[in-house]
Amino acid sequence: TGIVNVSSSLNVRSSASTSSKVIGSLSGNTKVTIVGEEGAFYKIEYKGSHGYVAAEYI
């Protein structure tokens, strides 16, 4: 489990890349469940599926 540490919002992406499609966003202080790690990204549970967020902001 981690907490989103941004002042505005954090993009949730379809894969572990900044060039991948943005599938949603999370606001600051949102609690997320981390299920894996790929490079600089965490794989998280997101809306019944999975998404990827930049690990530096969690």
Rank of each mutant, 00 (worst) to 15 (best):
T1N: 09
T1A: 10
T1H: 13
G2K: 06
I3T: 09
I3F: 13
I3P: 04
V4A: 05
N5A: 09
V6G: 10
S7Y: 08
S8H: 15
S9F: 12
S9W: 11
S9G: 14
S9V: 11
S9Q: 11
S9H: 13
S9E: 10
L10W: 02
L10C: 15
L10P: 07
N11Y: 10
N11Q: 14
N11F: 10
N11H: 14
V12Q: 00
R13I: 06
S14Y: 10
S14L: 13
S14Q: 14
S14D: 11
A16L: 04
A16W: 03
A16Y: 04
S17W: 04
S17D: 12
S17E: 08
S17Q: 07
T18Q: 12
T18R: 11
S19I: 09
S19Y: 08
S19Q: 11
S19C: 13
S20G: 14
S20C: 06
S20P: 01
S20M: 03
K21M: 12
K21H: 10
K21A: 13
V22R: 04
I23T: 03
I23H: 01
I23G: 01
G24P: 00
G24Y: 04
G24E: 01
G24S: 02
G24T: 02
G24N: 01
G24F: 06
G24A: 04
S25V: 15
S25M: 14
S25H: 13
S25L: 13
L26I: 13
L26S: 01
S27P: 15
S27R: 14
S27E: 13
G28P: 15
G28M: 12
G28N: 14
N29K: 11
N29I: 06
N29D: 08
N29L: 11
T30W: 07
T30H: 07
T30P: 03
K31N: 08
K31C: 14
K31Q: 12
K31M: 13
K31Y: 12
K31F: 11
K31V: 15
V32K: 00
V32I: 08
V32Y: 03
V32F: 04
V32H: 01
V32N: 00
T33N: 11
T33K: 12
T33A: 07
T33I: 14
T33D: 06
I34L: 05
I34T: 00
I34V: 06
V35W: 06
V35C: 09
G36W: 06
G36F: 05
E37P: 05
E37Y: 14
E38Q: 08
E38W: 07
G39Q: 04
G39A: 05
G39W: 04
A40K: 11
A40C: 14
F41N: 02
F41Y: 10
Y42K: 05
Y42V: 08
Y42P: 03
K43D: 03
K43W: 05
K43G: 02
I44L: 02
I44S: 01
E45V: 12
E45K: 09
E45L: 13
E45D: 08
E45A: 08
Y46V: 02
Y46R: 00
Y46F: 13
K47D: 11
K47Y: 09
K47C: 15
K47V: 06
G48H: 06
G48F: 05
G48M: 05
G48S: 07
G48N: 08
S49L: 11
S49D: 09
S49K: 11
S49T: 13
H50N: 06
H50A: 07
H50P: 05
G51F: 04
G51Y: 04
G51W: 03
Y52S: 00
Y52T: 00
Y52W: 12
Y52F: 10
Y52M: 01
V53R: 00
V53D: 00
V53Y: 02
V53A: 04
A54F: 14
A54I: 14
A54G: 07
A54P: 15
A55V: 12
A55K: 15
A55Y: 06
A55L: 08
E56C: 12
E56D: 08
E56Q: 12
E56S: 08
E56Y: 08
E56W: 07
Y57T: 05
Y57I: 03
Y57P: 02
I58E: 01
I58F: 05
I58Y: 03
I58N: 02
